[in-house]
Computed example of a mutant assay.
Amino acid sequence: MCGRYSLSKSKIELEERFQAEMLPDFNPRYNIAPTQLVPVITSASPKGFSFFYWGITPDFGKNKPVAQKLINAKAETVDQKISFKSSFQRRRCIIPADGFYEWKKLGKKTKIPYRFTLRDNELFSMAGIWEEYESVSGETQHTFLILTTTPNEVVSEIHDRMPVILTKEAEKKWLDNYSSEEDLKKYLAPYTSDQMLSFTVSPLVNSVANDTAAVMRKTSPMDQHGNYTLFG
Protein backbone atom coordinates (compact mmCIF):
# COMPACT_ATOMS: atom_id res chain seq x y z
CA MET A 1 0.00 0.00 0.00
CA CYS A 2 0.92 3.65 -0.08
CA GLY A 3 -0.04 5.28 3.20
CA ARG A 4 2.13 8.39 3.45
CA TYR A 5 3.84 10.73 0.97
CA SER A 6 5.31 14.23 0.60
CA LEU A 7 4.89 17.28 -1.61
CA SER A 8 7.64 19.58 -0.41
CA LYS A 9 8.17 21.67 -3.54
CA SER A 10 7.09 25.29 -3.91
CA LYS A 11 3.97 26.66 -5.61
CA ILE A 12 6.09 27.88 -8.54
CA GLU A 13 7.78 24.51 -9.00
CA LEU A 14 4.42 22.74 -8.99
CA GLU A 15 2.88 25.11 -11.52
CA GLU A 16 5.87 24.82 -13.85
CA ARG A 17 6.05 21.03 -13.67
CA PHE A 18 2.34 20.33 -14.12
CA GLN A 19 1.29 23.41 -16.11
CA ALA A 20 -1.62 23.96 -13.72
CA GLU A 21 -2.65 26.80 -11.44
CA MET A 22 -2.13 26.38 -7.69
CA LEU A 23 -3.87 28.24 -4.85
CA PRO A 24 -1.86 31.32 -3.73
CA ASP A 25 -1.62 30.14 -0.12
CA PHE A 26 -0.29 26.65 -0.85
CA ASN A 27 2.26 25.41 1.70
CA PRO A 28 4.67 22.49 1.13
CA ARG A 29 3.73 19.22 2.83
CA TYR A 30 6.24 16.73 4.21
CA ASN A 31 4.12 14.00 5.79
CA ILE A 32 0.77 13.69 4.00
CA ALA A 33 -1.61 11.13 5.50
CA PRO A 34 -5.05 9.65 4.71
CA THR A 35 -8.19 11.80 5.28
CA GLN A 36 -6.20 15.01 4.69
CA LEU A 37 -7.16 17.58 2.06
CA VAL A 38 -4.41 17.66 -0.57
CA PRO A 39 -3.85 18.77 -4.20
CA VAL A 40 -4.66 16.58 -7.19
CA ILE A 41 -5.20 17.23 -10.90
CA THR A 42 -8.30 15.67 -12.44
CA SER A 43 -9.32 14.74 -15.95
CA ALA A 44 -12.29 17.08 -15.45
CA SER A 45 -10.08 20.10 -14.63
CA PRO A 46 -6.52 19.48 -15.90
CA LYS A 47 -5.41 23.14 -15.86
CA GLY A 48 -5.75 23.66 -12.13
CA PHE A 49 -5.03 21.89 -8.85
CA SER A 50 -8.12 20.66 -7.02
CA PHE A 51 -8.09 19.83 -3.30
CA PHE A 52 -9.61 16.44 -2.44
CA TYR A 53 -9.64 14.25 0.67
CA TRP A 54 -7.35 11.24 0.53
CA GLY A 55 -9.46 8.13 1.05
CA ILE A 56 -12.34 9.41 3.14
CA THR A 57 -13.18 12.66 4.88
CA PRO A 58 -11.99 13.18 8.48
CA ASP A 59 -15.55 13.11 9.88
CA PHE A 60 -16.37 9.78 8.27
CA GLY A 61 -13.13 8.14 9.36
CA LYS A 62 -12.81 9.76 12.79
CA ASN A 63 -13.20 6.57 14.79
CA LYS A 64 -11.69 4.12 12.34
CA PRO A 65 -8.07 2.88 12.32
CA VAL A 66 -6.08 3.54 9.13
CA ALA A 67 -6.23 -0.17 8.27
CA GLN A 68 -9.99 0.15 7.78
CA LYS A 69 -9.83 3.26 5.66
CA LEU A 70 -9.90 2.78 1.91
CA ILE A 71 -6.91 4.78 0.62
CA ASN A 72 -5.54 2.63 -2.22
CA ALA A 73 -6.90 0.59 -5.13
CA LYS A 74 -5.05 -2.25 -6.84
CA ALA A 75 -4.11 -1.37 -10.41
CA GLU A 76 -4.53 -5.01 -11.46
CA THR A 77 -8.27 -5.02 -10.70
CA VAL A 78 -9.32 -1.34 -10.84
CA ASP A 79 -11.09 -1.89 -14.17
CA GLN A 80 -12.98 -4.93 -12.85
CA LYS A 81 -14.26 -4.08 -9.37
CA ILE A 82 -17.72 -2.54 -9.35
CA SER A 83 -16.66 -0.01 -6.69
CA PHE A 84 -13.82 1.33 -8.87
CA LYS A 85 -14.76 0.65 -12.49
CA SER A 86 -16.80 3.82 -13.07
CA SER A 87 -14.10 6.02 -11.56
CA PHE A 88 -11.43 4.32 -13.65
CA GLN A 89 -13.42 5.03 -16.78
CA ARG A 90 -14.58 8.58 -16.03
CA ARG A 91 -12.90 10.07 -12.96
CA ARG A 92 -9.14 9.76 -13.09
CA CYS A 93 -6.60 12.03 -11.42
CA ILE A 94 -2.89 12.41 -10.83
CA ILE A 95 -1.49 13.06 -7.38
CA PRO A 96 1.65 15.26 -7.34
CA ALA A 97 4.43 14.10 -5.01
CA ASP A 98 8.18 14.21 -4.53
CA GLY A 99 8.51 11.15 -2.32
CA PHE A 100 6.61 8.45 -0.44
CA TYR A 101 7.26 6.43 2.72
CA GLU A 102 7.11 2.76 3.63
CA TRP A 103 8.14 0.86 6.76
CA LYS A 104 10.43 -2.18 6.88
CA LYS A 105 9.41 -4.70 9.54
CA LEU A 106 12.28 -6.08 11.62
CA GLY A 107 10.14 -7.83 14.19
CA LYS A 108 6.79 -7.59 15.94
CA LYS A 109 7.52 -4.16 17.38
CA THR A 110 10.28 -2.74 15.22
CA LYS A 111 9.71 -0.90 11.95
CA ILE A 112 12.23 1.25 10.08
CA PRO A 113 10.80 4.13 7.98
CA TYR A 114 12.13 4.52 4.44
CA ARG A 115 11.68 7.34 1.96
CA PHE A 116 11.46 6.69 -1.79
CA THR A 117 12.18 9.38 -4.38
CA LEU A 118 13.16 9.70 -8.00
CA ARG A 119 16.91 9.67 -8.51
CA ASP A 120 17.12 13.43 -9.18
CA ASN A 121 14.57 14.28 -6.44
CA GLU A 122 12.21 15.79 -8.98
CA LEU A 123 8.44 15.99 -8.80
CA PHE A 124 6.41 13.06 -10.08
CA SER A 125 2.78 11.99 -10.08
CA MET A 126 0.92 8.94 -8.84
CA ALA A 127 -2.11 7.57 -10.69
CA GLY A 128 -5.42 7.94 -8.90
CA ILE A 129 -9.19 7.81 -9.20
CA TRP A 130 -11.70 10.14 -7.53
CA GLU A 131 -15.31 10.30 -6.38
CA GLU A 132 -17.86 13.04 -5.72
CA TYR A 133 -20.62 12.67 -3.16
CA GLU A 134 -22.94 14.65 -0.93
CA SER A 135 -22.20 14.74 2.79
CA VAL A 136 -24.80 14.43 5.54
CA SER A 137 -24.86 18.23 5.79
CA GLY A 138 -25.58 18.54 2.07
CA GLU A 139 -22.09 19.65 1.01
CA THR A 140 -20.47 18.30 -2.15
CA GLN A 141 -17.17 16.66 -1.26
CA HIS A 142 -14.48 14.83 -3.21
CA THR A 143 -12.17 11.97 -2.31
CA PHE A 144 -9.40 10.11 -4.15
CA LEU A 145 -7.53 6.81 -3.99
CA ILE A 146 -3.97 6.08 -5.09
CA LEU A 147 -3.48 3.12 -7.43
CA THR A 148 -0.83 0.62 -6.37
CA THR A 149 1.01 -2.09 -8.27
CA THR A 150 3.65 -4.75 -7.69
CA PRO A 151 6.96 -3.27 -6.46
CA ASN A 152 10.10 -2.71 -8.50
CA GLU A 153 13.50 -3.89 -7.21
CA VAL A 154 14.01 -0.79 -5.06
CA VAL A 155 10.68 -0.96 -3.26
CA SER A 156 10.44 -4.77 -3.04
CA GLU A 157 13.21 -4.82 -0.42
CA ILE A 158 10.85 -2.96 1.91
CA HIS A 159 7.26 -3.57 0.80
CA ASP A 160 5.13 -5.77 -1.49
CA ARG A 161 3.24 -2.86 -3.13
CA MET A 162 4.13 0.55 -4.52
CA PRO A 163 2.16 3.48 -5.97
CA VAL A 164 1.75 3.65 -9.74
CA ILE A 165 4.16 6.41 -10.77
CA LEU A 166 3.41 7.98 -14.14
CA THR A 167 5.83 9.43 -16.67
CA LYS A 168 4.99 12.83 -18.16
CA GLU A 169 3.70 11.10 -21.31
CA ALA A 170 1.54 8.75 -19.23
CA GLU A 171 0.12 11.69 -17.25
CA LYS A 172 -1.37 13.17 -20.41
CA LYS A 173 -2.94 9.84 -21.38
CA TRP A 174 -4.24 9.26 -17.85
CA LEU A 175 -6.02 12.63 -17.84
CA ASP A 176 -7.31 12.30 -21.40
CA ASN A 177 -11.03 11.48 -21.34
CA TYR A 178 -10.69 9.78 -24.72
CA SER A 179 -7.97 7.30 -23.71
CA SER A 180 -9.09 3.68 -24.04
CA GLU A 181 -9.01 1.31 -21.08
CA GLU A 182 -6.54 -0.85 -22.97
CA ASP A 183 -4.13 2.08 -23.36
CA LEU A 184 -4.54 3.18 -19.75
CA LYS A 185 -3.75 -0.25 -18.35
CA LYS A 186 -0.36 -0.16 -20.10
CA TYR A 187 0.75 2.56 -17.70
CA LEU A 188 -0.26 0.70 -14.53
CA ALA A 189 3.13 -0.94 -14.07
CA PRO A 190 6.05 -0.63 -11.62
CA TYR A 191 8.25 2.42 -12.22
CA THR A 192 11.77 1.84 -13.54
CA SER A 193 14.07 0.78 -10.69
CA ASP A 194 17.17 2.58 -11.88
CA GLN A 195 15.33 5.89 -11.72
CA MET A 196 14.54 5.59 -7.98
CA LEU A 197 16.33 5.87 -4.66
CA SER A 198 15.48 4.79 -1.12
CA PHE A 199 16.95 5.69 2.26
CA THR A 200 16.08 5.52 5.94
CA VAL A 201 14.54 8.55 7.63
CA SER A 202 13.79 9.65 11.18
CA PRO A 203 11.02 7.88 13.16
CA LEU A 204 9.51 11.36 13.44
CA VAL A 205 7.63 10.43 10.25
CA ASN A 206 5.68 7.83 12.26
CA SER A 207 3.45 10.57 13.66
CA VAL A 208 1.22 12.51 11.25
CA ALA A 209 1.56 15.46 13.62
CA ASN A 210 5.15 15.88 12.41
CA ASP A 211 4.74 17.69 9.11
CA THR A 212 8.15 19.35 8.82
CA ALA A 213 11.20 18.91 6.58
CA ALA A 214 12.89 16.97 9.40
CA VAL A 215 10.88 13.84 8.55
CA MET A 216 12.43 13.68 5.06
CA ARG A 217 16.09 13.91 6.05
CA LYS A 218 18.29 10.89 5.53
CA THR A 219 19.33 9.28 8.82
CA SER A 220 21.03 6.18 10.10
CA PRO A 221 18.57 3.29 10.44
CA MET A 222 16.61 3.55 13.70
CA ASP A 223 13.76 1.59 15.14
CA GLN A 224 10.45 3.10 16.16
CA HIS A 225 11.89 4.02 19.58
CA GLY A 226 14.76 5.98 18.06
CA ASN A 227 17.41 3.36 18.77
CA TYR A 228 20.15 2.88 16.19
CA THR A 229 20.21 -0.52 14.51
CA LEU A 230 22.55 -2.50 12.32
CA PHE A 231 19.89 -2.96 9.64
CA GLY A 232 19.31 -0.89 6.50
Rank of each mutant, 00 (worst) to 15 (best):
G3Y: 09
Y5R: 03
Y5Q: 06
Y5G: 11
S6D: 07
S10R: 02
K11D: 00
I12H: 07
L14G: 00
F18G: 00
Q19N: 14
A20C: 12
L23P: 02
L23S: 05
D25I: 09
F26K: 01
N27I: 07
R29E: 15
Y30V: 02
N31A: 08
P34N: 06
P34M: 07
Q36Y: 10
P39Y: 03
I41H: 03
S43P: 02
A44P: 03
S45Q: 14
P46S: 11
P46Y: 06
K47R: 14
G48W: 05
F49T: 00
S50R: 00
F52Y: 00
W54E: 01
I56Y: 03
I56D: 05
D59K: 10
G61E: 05
K64R: 15
K64W: 08
P65D: 02
Q68Y: 14
A73S: 13
K74H: 13
T77R: 10
D79Q: 10
D79R: 03
Q80E: 15
K81L: 15
K81M: 13
K81R: 14
F84I: 05
K85S: 14
K85P: 04
S87R: 02
F88I: 01
F88M: 02
R90H: 11
R90S: 02
R92H: 03
C93K: 01
I94T: 03
I95S: 10
G99Y: 10
Y101M: 11
E102K: 07
E102S: 07
K105W: 04
L106A: 13
G107L: 11
K108D: 13
K109S: 15
K109R: 10
P113N: 12
Y114T: 06
Y114R: 03
L118W: 04
R119V: 14
D120R: 09
D120V: 04
N121D: 13
I129A: 00
W130R: 00
E132T: 00
E132P: 00
E132V: 00
E139G: 02
E139A: 07
I146Y: 06
L147S: 07
T148I: 12
T149E: 01
P151I: 09
P151D: 12
H159L: 01
D160Q: 15
M162T: 08
I165A: 05
L166E: 00
T167M: 01
K168M: 13
K168E: 15
K172N: 10
K172M: 09
K173H: 11
W174D: 01
D176E: 13
Y178M: 09
D183L: 12
L184D: 04
K186A: 09
Y187A: 11
A189F: 07
T192D: 12
T192G: 08
S193M: 06
S193V: 04
M196E: 15
F199Y: 15
F199D: 07
S202W: 13
L204C: 10
V205D: 05
V205N: 07
V208D: 12
A209G: 09
N210F: 08
D211H: 07
T212F: 11
A214T: 06
A214W: 05
V215E: 06
V215G: 08
M216T: 15
K218T: 13
T219D: 07
P221S: 15
H225L: 13
G226V: 09
T229K: 08
T229E: 11
